[in-house]
């Protein structure tokens, strides 16, 4: 695992220098993103094998955590296979300035999991795959891997400090794939309570950024 030591390098990077800064911070910041770049640029099989070794078991765990309609016992192995093939195929389009490898692979896995479950449980024709919702324009402001690594470390640390009932709801939503309404039914809580717990958790983790602060 990476050291979670947080560097104190300045945040104010001139944009013309961003590639150099991105490169210089890569080694310290995030080996997985580095490996993914290498898969994209060089079709690097060794790097891909390392990613597979790290993410494969996590993806299988992620599949098994799902409590959604359409779940089937082979989902774990199918998901690992489908996600890792997508990772290989899409790696050339991976942009480390938009998201770290961990976040990028999570979004691929989330979309795959939903689409696989839908294909199992839905007989209607679905014109859109979940993946289609994630085609956003390129960001004007790149985010260095170091910045991303820092904010992910912060999120990881603050997740551990959340009150149990807030942590439980986030896990239900993200891991089990439950909507707020389903979570409210299962936990026997009013929908408003579920939403306010989620809101409190996001505030505590400083995920909610006010619109004023950003502009």
């Amino acid at each position: 695992m990476l050291t979670s030591k947080i560097s104190t390098a300045s945040n104010n990077q001139p944009t013309d220098n961003r590639v150099a800064i991105l490169n210089s911070s890569e080694k310290r910041s995030d080996q997985w993103s580095q490996l993914l770049i290498s898969v994209g640029e060089n079709r690097d099989r060794k790097a891909f094998a390392q990613l597979f070794k790290h993410f494969g078991p996590l993806l299988k765990g992620f599949a098994h955590a799902s409590r959604n309609e359409g779940w089937f016992p082979g989902l774990g192995d199918d998901l690992v296979q489908e996600v890792m093939i997508k990772v290989w195929n899409k790696a050339a389009g991976y942009n480390a300035e938009k998201a770290s490898a961990t976040t990028w692979i999570y979004t691929v896995a989330r979309n795959c999991r939903i689409d696989m479950l839908r294909r199992k449980s839905n007989t209607q024709h679905l014109p859109l795959e979940n993946e289609d919702f994630w085609h956003e324009p390129d960001e004007v402001t790149p985010i260095s891997l170091l910045q991303q690594k820092r904010s992910e470390d912060k999120i990881q640390a603050s997740l551990a400090q959340l009150p149990k009932e807030q942590n439980q709801i986030l896990r239900k939503v993200y891991l089990e794939g439950k909507s707020h309404a389903e979570a409210s039914a299962e936990l026997n809580l009013p929908l408003g309570t579920v939403k306010s717990r989620v809101r409190l958790a996001l505030q505590k983790m400083q995920i909610i950024v006010s619109k004023e602060a950003q502009e």
Binding site: G56, P57, L58, K60, G61, F62, H64, A65, G76, D77, V80, K98, A99, S100, T102, T103, I105, Y106, T107, A109, R110, E136, E139, V140, I143, Q148, S151, E152, I155, Q156, L159, L170, R171, Y174, L175, L202, M205, I207, I208, V209, K211, Q214, E215
Partner: peptide
């Protein structure tokens, strides 16, 4: 772009929760 930035942070939460799930042997 404001909501895209917000979404990235929420995706980061999801990715951290995924990495904290119990890994399963392949």
């Amino acid at each position: 772009s404001h909501c895209r930035a917000q979404l990235l942070r929420l995706d980061q939460v999801g990715s951290q929760i995924m990495t904290q799930s119990d890994p399963m042997t392949l």
